[in-house]
Every structure is written in C-alpha cells, then in structure tokens.
Design a protein around this nucleic acid. Sequence first.
DNA 1: GCGCCGGATTACCACGTAGTAAATCTCCTG
DNA 2: CAGGAGATTTACTACGTGGTAATCCGGCGC
Lengths: 358, 358
Amino acid sequence: MAVTMRDVAIVARVSPKTVSNVVNDHPNVHPDTRARVQRAIAELGYRPNHSARGLRSGRTGVIGLAVPELKQAYFAELADAVIAAAAKRGLSVIVGQLGGDREHEIELLTHGLPQTDGLLFSPEQLGSEDRDLLADVDFPLVMLGEWIFGGPTDHVTMHNVTAARSAVEHLISLGRRRIAVIGAHPEDETRQLGPSNLRIQGYREALAAAGIEHDPRLERVVAPWHPDDGAEAARELIRSGLEFDAVFALTDALALGALRALGEAGRVVPDDVAVIGFDNIAISHLANPSLSSVDPGRAEIAEMAVGMLVERIEWGTGSSRPARLHKAAFDVIVRESSGGTTVTAPTEPADAAQALNG
Amino acid sequence: MAVTMRDVAIVARVSPKTVSNVVNDHPNVHPDTRARVQRAIAELGYRPNHSARGLRSGRTGVIGLAVPELKQAYFAELADAVIAAAAKRGLSVIVGQLGGDREHEIELLTHGLPQTDGLLFSPEQLGSEDRDLLADVDFPLVMLGEWIFGGPTDHVTMHNVTAARSAVEHLISLGRRRIAVIGAHPEDETRQLGPSNLRIQGYREALAAAGIEHDPRLERVVAPWHPDDGAEAARELIRSGLEFDAVFALTDALALGALRALGEAGRVVPDDVAVIGFDNIAISHLANPSLSSVDPGRAEIAEMAVGMLVERIEWGTGSSRPARLHKAAFDVIVRESSGGTTVTAPTEPADAAQALNG
DNA sequence: GCGCCGGATTACCACGTAGTAAATCTCCTG
DNA sequence: CAGGAGATTTACTACGTGGTAATCCGGCGC
C-alpha cells in the first residue's frame, strides 16, 4: 500500500493533521516541525492521494477537454495548447472525443466528464438552437468554437468575420478580383452562426469594401468540412469554367486539397491562382507551395479558456457571474501560396464581430 | 451537494450498500429491488462519485498517455486511437505532454501521472541506457515507441525494420536503384535502437537483398526529426550533385519537406524521383502529389497497448508476469508520390525484428 | 504569580463508496 | 413444522484527506 500522511506523521512524530498542514502550506506551522515533516516526506517518498483529496475537497485537479476528433490537426493543436495552459496551473486534462455525434454532445452537457472539475467543450453538432441546453449545466463550463453564441456560458473563440475579411483583403491587395471560396455551408436558419457562414460574411465584406462584384457561383459548398472534399470542390470549380484568380479556403485542410486540385489542372500557385487557408495548422508551411493561412490565435484561446474555467471553478457554480465572450487576436500568415511578405493584423475591436452574436 | 448513494437508498427504502450492489451489477440482488433502486437513481439523477470510488477501490478509471507533443500529427493520431480504445473499455485518458524534456520523462517514470491507474508512455529522450529506470516502476506501465527495448515492461511498437524494408522494396520494384534516405541519425552507441536506426537497417537490408550497392552518401542526417529540416536535407542532397531516383523519408513530415524541396528544384515526383514516407499521417494523402507512406498500424498499437495496460491494472502490480512485446501489422500505402497500386504487406513473424531487441 | 493571548498542534470527524461478515429472508426437504 | 441451504440484505468499517474546534504551551502584562 502507498505511503499515507499517517505514515509520514509517525516518522516525523507529529499528527497526521500537521502533515496535512505542511503539505498544504498552511501558516502557523513551526519551521522546525515543517522541516522535520518534509524530511519524513522525502524519506518515505510520500505522494498525496488525489482520490482522497478529491473526496474531501470536492476538487480533482483535472479538467476535461471535449473535441470532435483529435486526429484533425486543428483540434490536436488546440489540445496541445490547452494541455500546456492547464499544466501551468497544475491541472491535468482528460481529453474526450465525441466523434461528431450529436447524442454524445448533448449527453456531455447534461453530465460533464466524470472525474473533472470543469469542461472545455468544442462542439460540432450543436448549434445556437441548442442554446437552452446550456442553461441547465450545473458544472463549470467554457465553450470553444463558433457553433453556439449568446448562450449563458463563458465562450472563447476567434475573430471569424474580421480574420476572414483580412485574409480576403490580403488577396485583393495582390490585385486579385475573382476570388473563390471553398467550404461554404448551405445557408441554414439554425446554423447561420457557424464558422463557415461567419467567414463567408468576412469574405463578402472584404469584396464589398473593395467594390468588387460578388459572384455567388464562386462560393463553393463543402459541408461538412471533410478535408478530402476540398480537392473535389476545387475540381468542380475548375470544371465549371468560371474565371478565378484566387481561392480562399475556409480551413487549411480544404486549402491543401485545393492546392492538389489546382496542381492537377496545371494552374500555378500563386501565379495563376493565389491561395489562402484558415487555421494555420502546423503542416501548412510544409505544403508545396507553402500555404498562406489565418492564424486564429490558438495559444491565446487556450490560455483564456483555461483561465476562465479556473475562475468558474474557484468561484463555485453557485455564483452566477455574467457570461463572458473572448475572441483571440489573429494573424494573417503570408507564405508562398499567396507570395508576399508576412503581414500581421492587429486585433480588431471586439464590437464589430460581437454584433453578430446576439 | 450532489446526490449520493445514501440519498438513493432512502428513496428506494434499502440500505446504501444495496444501492452500491445495484450500481456495480452484483449478483444476488432481487430483480424487484434492483428495479426499485434503478428507478430511484433515475429519479434523483444519481451519479457515482469517482473520487470516493477511487479512494475505496484504489482505481480511478483513468489512464495516462504521455507523449512529447500533441501537435505532432503522429502523436495526435496515436492519442486519437488510444482515447478511442480506452473509451471502449470505459476508461478516460489524461494526456500529458513532456515536450521532449528528459527530466520530465524521468520524473514521470518515477511517479507516474497523478489520478491514473496506469500509464502509456511514448518517450523521446530516453534510450536503452535508461532501461534500469523501468525496473523500479511501481505502477502499471506500457511503453510505446522504439527508444527502449528489452526492458522489464510491456512494450507495443511497430515493425520498423521490416516495414522500412518493405517501403524500400516497393521503391526498388519501381525500378529505382539510387534511393536516398532522409532522417538518418548519427550512429550512437546508446541510441542504436532508435526508430531512425531501425528504419535505416530495413533500408540497407532491402538494398542488400536486391543486390544494390549501398552508398552512404545517400543517407542524409536529420537529427532530431524536426520536420522543417526535411526540406533542408533534401536541398542539400540536391546540391550535393549525387544522382538519386527515389527518396525514403523516415517520417511523413520529413517527406513533405522533401516534396517541397524537390518541387523547388524542378524534379518531378514521381517521374524523376519517387518518394515514400513513414507514419501515414492523415494529411499525407492531401499532399501534392499525394504521399506514399508506411502505415504503422496505429489502431492496432493503441488497441494492444490499452489492452495490455488494462491487464496489468487488473492483475495488480504485485504479480510480475513476464514483459510482452507486441508489434503491430503494417501496410505500405502507395499513392502518387511513388505512383502505383496499393500493396498490403502481411505481418512478418515477430522473430525477425525481435532479434534486434535483446 | 496568575491569567490571558495567540501561535502551534492535535483529536475528531465526515466526505461517498465498497469489502467483510453477519443478519435476515425464502423456499425446500424430510 | 423444524432444519437448513442459499439468496438477499444489512451493519459496520476503512480508504486518505482536510475542516472544525479543542487543547497545549510559552511569554507577556499586571
């Protein structure tokens, strides 16, 4: 059996409670006693039992992170950042995969993940129509991503509209006028605030601001965002005979597929067609040509999300503070696929996009 | 406060212990009683307290997975598979990132991850010289990867030698004779069993078997395997003026870099140079051209590793059963970069590679 | 010299669960 | 209808920790 406080107490000739006080850095422990206890701890190799601590204190020191699938690079990198941010605060992370299963996602909201003090949740199947589910959540929760806005829950996300707009403005600044989009979702009452539609909105805003005519035929549907379909969408675009000199792909995975399709068709990137993606996943700069992308500020998202969750955990579920919405600063990363020099866009005032989310 | 067994017991008019028996599916509970208790559980929304259960039973129902970095696609996909395999068995997974820090890795082996029943560990900095560390481990542990062989611990890995050999044999079958390797590590007494050297060995075996002269200058060093360096290694290879008609990159990330460099230099893949990687990460088939690769059998690795760990957990640390070594079946996935049709290699008899690991 | 103050330490207990062993019930045999 | 085997249920307890409140002790003021 493992070493307990009791064992340490015997060796240090104090009570178990004093050991507890030393371990928890309580004041009012005599320095000599503290030293003696610490020596005993080291000697015996004592390690606190987290289950017992959790039972007694109601905290496990573990938070949950729920994503659709870790094998999607975006979520893997998000998890990487979340785990790092949690580790800074001495928290462990249980990662759950919901596999895009709506039932699982609903179940998760009603019960949370076992063994955890709180949950970071990036849903894929829930939409703003499920907002009511959030009202009944009785554990600390911070939502990630763009499916549910305006709920009663803390929410960390990215500047979809403005970042997309900046990406398209970058393409326009290269002189491109016929800019296609890959990854549009059909307009849908309940999903109008999904990431696709927000980014499409940024695209349209950029066109409008530049006085470029909006050609709906250049908005190519890929729904849901299966990366394999990016190439197919680009092939259809090419087959359609429509003229275009740039592609804005709404995720990097779609963009990589588009690069393939363009290559097959003999279109040179970026000379014939400039391409930019969204997410800035790690392999994008290894693509051939390397892929320009919008970096959504993953580290900041993770840091803020963990910070908010910790606050909620520490305040307890009782106090109902108002929900907060945070959007991370983004960067437009210019690489070979839209040849140019690196440009960094400052964070926009949150108001602009915030207005969308009511 | 949450609903406890006590609360359920009162509503169901039984003792708390009977509730426990129902929850744990004990035999010898009267069907009527069981039904009554289950109704009370549903009515009150009772959920077991995992901390208390863990305290009482010594099990947490959580296993740990420690990898260098989740943002490396290989580890993300491994984690994906491990989490899925664990979920099948009702286990949660805490994912830890050691960031390639040797001190962290050693610390992990001495204490394990808190809150977990056992650990799956894929080290990066430990080598066979650290084998002794494993002897003192007092928690269920299954090692993953290729750094430590012959330790006293269960170990799940891939057929590095044979799989690499098959990859090179594939290149040879295309008529290639000047086959370069990207990702060799300097020969090093303590690290001779690292994945690099094992794969290099497979490469040399394939050449030897085909009667092709081995040119050491075609073995290009990239150590450690930073993906960005793959392109640079390929550029150096090109600059060297050495003739070559194929590249075997020891990871897909290196291969993607090589595709870039070859493209820059105007070498057409696969016509001028055939390329194959190793790991079969998800984005490889989106590369341009799509990347041939060796699929190391991630799902099988995860499944076996979790299975072994569960066995160790259930047997308890007391019983010292002999350590097992399992190598997953691999596939050679042929895509455009080495144009051809898909080939599946059967699992080799374990002996061949096993002999290396003594 | 007495009593009080406050720092230091301790006893006691409860957190929610499940193992153990004992108690109780049920049904069958003779 | 007694006896008993087996099924079912229960009382009791410990798991390791930390909150609460009580106790202990040395030094100080009067």
